[in-house]
Design a protein around this nucleic acid. Structure first.
Lengths: 188, 188
DNA sequence: TACAGTGATGACACGCGATGTCATCACTAG
DNA sequence: CTAGTGATGACATCGCGTGTCATCACTGTA
């Protein structure tokens, strides 16, 4: 983290890292699959957390309730009280395409854990996928706003507000659009 | 594509590709930023397509209408009629983590284009982010189901059905959950 | 027709990331 | 004291990706 802060992620080599840590590059790659993974190793257990959590809910629980409650626990566990550190981490991830890709991958893994959990609760595949994606979207959008905010609003409260916005957006009755006009643009 | 099909993505080296194509590796990297990009170069213009499209809609258009109509055009442009090719591509992308990461990155870029479009339409940041994420989720979930289906249902029809499912899911009035009990799990 | 400019490619060198393999060493159980 | 185990170091090696310079085809212009 020191080296990344000093000279950026891409400009920092694994040999530099291991030199400062007093190890060899080979040892580094025994602990981290690749250089990017250093910044994401902490999140490795999140999918398990999600899976265990989902099993603990009674079968009667509504999916949305389950998502919101699960995110509430996740927030307590790893977000609340770490705002500054998370901001620094976000900025670092933003600065490098490779890191952004890995971040998105972690997000997808979490969505997959959610989807699997819904499947074993007997929810049909498409609905499960949709719920999973909606859940991570809710989380990521809320976290983004929370990190941007300068007040002390709780992440959980931001999340509930985001959910309301989401709901309001979709509730409007303006779905089936026409099927002809519309300008033409070349995308190929 | 021949080599990837024969021996998989990871096992195929850039020298192998350029040898079969009659070029050098240096030339390869002048056309593609990296090896993975070969499979995604076709999508490079999608963000522009999205941006231009969004500007072409009247300011009065509802965001959801805009998303659905935009996706309808995108579907006509690059999905309908290419089902088998898209299935093969999906399977290849699924087979490699690196490719999955790049795929997610492209998805994020599209979301970003959508978000920017909404911003310049005067929509507030959080709502814009939410709409953008919802839009790509709608697209990806629908495409996934469409590719899984064995019937000839149109992608656009699948998409409308997905949107209805999404709406139904969020419309239920079971939001603010309690805030105390719930089991405990270690995620650290 | 000659010539300068432009763009694509080849040739070469190089650094870094990542992995396989074997040796070494600290630690532990019996 | 010994055998086993796990972490690490020491090499060696491969593939990816980039910087640099030379070459060649093509184009517009005098």
């Amino acid at each position: 983290m020191e080296l990344f802060a000093e000279q950026g992620f891409a400009a920092t080599t694994v040999p530099e890292i291991t030199a400062r840590a007093g190890l060899t590059t080979r040892t580094f790659h025994r602990h981290f699959a690749d250089k990017r993974e250093v910044l994401f190793a902490d999140d490795a257990r999140v999918p398990d957390f999600v899976a265990v959590l989902m099993e603990s809910f009674p079968p009667s629980a509504e999916p949305i309730t389950l998502i919101v409650e699960g995110l509430r626990l996740l927030i307590e566990e790893r977000f609340e009280g770490r705002k500054e550190a998370l901001r620094a981490r976000r900025d670092l991830v933003r600065s490098d395409d490779g890191l952004r890709e890995r971040d998105l991958h972690k997000r997808a893994v979490m969505a997959e854990a959610l989807r699997t959990g819904f499947l074993s609760r007997g929810i049909d595949p498409t609905r499960a996928a949709l719920l999973a994606e909606t859940g991570v979207t809710l989380m990521y959008v809320s976290v983004a706003e929370w990190l941007d905010r300068k007040d002390d609003r709780k992440l959980y409260d931001v999340l509930l507000a985001t959910l309301e916005t989401m709901r309001a957006e979709l509730t409007q009755e303006n779905v089936p659009p026409p099927a002809k006009p519309i300008p033409r643009t070349s995308a190929r």
